[in-house]
């Protein structure tokens, strides 16, 4: 039960975004991929879910090479994964309820659980996931355009959580959110990982979040892995980019917040 990158390279025209990138994420682990904008973080995530195919190398989910699967096999692998996109990516023409219920009504999901969910079960699941992201059921009949950007991002997260995937892929999950919601989302990622053994891969440039909840941190720069370490080791790194990230983080939050020992206290 793991996600594995093996010597993955990807170029767009003359731009080499990933250069022989290799890493592994174990079950129940939270891996943060940090890096500056445009360094291939989102591209890495899209390879896992088969939205992009590597030019060379392989991406493996539970031992299956994603880039070599046919459409039916790929759909089955995708069913194990949930992805939270950089944009909320909610379907404009559907209400909040319909958006969150979308993944519960697909033929793939019905095939996975062996039977279609009743409307009552769907409603219960939708309300439960909405509560997980600190939203009230009053917004169920709203269209995405009626919500603020932060609320849309949380609805998007609820939609991803609804089919209860084994792997969660987050592309900048807290960008554009207020600090309280950011903390709530981080705690949620932490919780899912610890209680349900959900594997999480988080793409971000938020070092503070990484130092709070990540098991391991991978720093991408110029298409290569600059560092791959656990939180405490990362803080000792002498790489200038990591030092810059740390300096920015330390300037923004008090040192106590960064204490690894306090992680348990941040989770609800």
């Amino acid at each position: 039960m793991s996600i594995r990158f093996e010597q993955v390279s990807k170029s767009f025209g003359t731009k080499h975004v990933l250069k022989q990138v290799s890493f592994k994420v174990e079950r129940g682990e939270i891996l943060f991929i940090l890096g500056r904008s445009g360094m291939g973080k989102s591209v890495t995530l899209k390879h896992i879910i088969g939205l992009l195919k590597p030019d060379s190398g392989g991406v493996f989910i539970d031992g299956q090479n994603v880039s070599q699967l046919d459409d039916i096999q790929l759909a089955k692998v995708r069913q194990k994964c949930g992805m939270v996109f950089q944009h909320p990516a909610l379907l404009d023409s559907l209400t909040v309820f319909e958006n969150i219920a979308f993944g519960l009504r697909t033929a793939q999901y019905i095939q996975l659980i062996g039977h279609p969910l009743s409307e009552d079960d769907i409603r219960r699941r939708v309300c439960e996931k909405l509560a997980d992201v600190n939203l009230k059921t009053e917004i169920l009949d709203c269209l995405p355009s009626d919500l603020s950007y932060g609320m849309q991002k949380r609805v998007s997260l609820a939609r991803t959580l609804a089919p209860e995937p084994e792997y969660l892929l987050f592309d900048e999950p807290t960008t554009g959110l207020d600090p309280i919601t950011t903390n709530a989302i981080n705690d949620l990622i932490h919780d899912l990982s610890r209680k349900l053994q959900v594997t999480s891969l988080v793409v971000s440039h938020d070092m503070a979040c990484a130092l709070k909840i990540a098991d391991r941190v991978l720093v991408l720069d110029q298409g290569k892995i600059l560092a791959h370490a656990d939180r405490s080791t990362l803080k000792l790194s002498e790489e200038p980019l990591i030092q810059d990230f740390l300096a920015e983080t330390l300037a923004l939050i008090p040192p106590a917040e960064l204490d690894v020992a306090s992680i348990g206290a941040t989770a609800p």
Binding site: L51, M83, A89, D92, F102, S156, R159
Partner: peptide
């Protein structure tokens, strides 16, 4: 618009063609 705001990717990831 659905493509650039990743709505189409989201549909694909949720198991729908």
């Amino acid at each position: 618009t659905m493509r650039v705001t990743e709505q189409i990717d989201a549909i694909e990831c949720l198991g729908t063609n």
